[in-house]
Computed example of a mutant assay.
Amino acid sequence: MRINKVTTAGSFDHSHLRGFTLIEVLIAMTLLSIMMVLLFTSLKICADSWERGESKITDVNEMAVVYNFFQRDLSIAKPLWKDLPAEEEKSFSFQGSSQSLQFVSAFPASAGRSGLQMFSLNLSEENNEQVINVTIVPFIRIAEGAKLQKEEVTLLKHVSDFTLSYFSSANEISEGTWADEWLNKEALPRLVKINIKLDNGIYWPAMIIDLKVTGTTDNANLGTESTADINQPESFQ
């Protein structure tokens, strides 16, 4: 009887210590998996939102650069005649088609490149994509053998569509018309409209540039002046 009492007294009740059941473990793992999925989904949404924001900023910056170029340089285009040798036919400096444009303008003083410049703008293909290129050369006839200071820059890449149109009217009162080209004229158009579409399907708002000088045939006498004189922007302020 004594031994039985000791055994009874030394026994330990394990009824209050129990582990997790298999169902509880599975439920805990399921909840943890759901939390991880929600966490990674939130991170992906944040990353996508950041990427879209960066892409939007890039698009806005590109649009601002292109618009500033046209507003700064095209708006002050000069109604000049090309300085050609006597045996060649005289032609007006401003020539525009639906996808190309040539005009004469002056860089601002901060550009570090003085004098009038000839801008040639066109849509071309590079590395299997369409780009808008700008070529800039001085608006003078250089001496034979002299090196021409030529600069070529890409204004915009990933271009799907690029069209130009030109507006003119006989006077401020009469109703004007838009044309797809401005070739072999003797004056500048009043307005130039630029439409651009990118490869990503985004259409830019149409840019309408108001030319500050509306040249007429009265400007023909400028073609008789020496290039040394007309190559100074101050004479046209």
Rank of each mutant, 00 (worst) to 15 (best):
A170S: 06
G215F: 11
G215N: 06
E125Y: 09
V213N: 01
G96I: 00
Y166M: 01
V213F: 10
K44W: 11
S124I: 05
I27H: 04
F103T: 04
L188T: 14
V131H: 01
V213L: 08
K197I: 04
K56N: 06
S33F: 09
F139T: 05
N219S: 09
P233Q: 12
D73V: 14
I132F: 14
L74K: 03
L116I: 03
S105Y: 05
T41D: 13
E87W: 14
K197Q: 12
L123N: 08
I142W: 15
Q117N: 12
D180S: 13
N128P: 02
Q99C: 15
N195K: 09
L211N: 03
A9I: 04
L211T: 02
P189A: 14
T30H: 04
A111T: 15
Y203V: 07
V153W: 10
N61T: 06
S55E: 15
F69D: 01
N128D: 11
H14A: 09
L148D: 01
F70N: 07
M36F: 08
I202F: 11
P138R: 00
T217M: 03
S226A: 15
I23A: 10
G96T: 01
Q102W: 06
I202T: 07
R113D: 03
I76W: 04
S49Q: 06
I140R: 03
S15Q: 10
L183A: 10
K193N: 14
D161L: 07
D199E: 13
L39S: 07
G215H: 07
I230P: 00
Q71M: 04
E62C: 05
D48I: 08
V131W: 00
V104S: 03
E51L: 12
G176M: 06
S174N: 15
T7M: 14
T30R: 00
V6N: 09
S226P: 06
N4R: 13
G53P: 11
K150M: 01
K193Q: 15
S33K: 04
A106P: 01
K157V: 00
F69C: 01
E51S: 10
E126S: 07
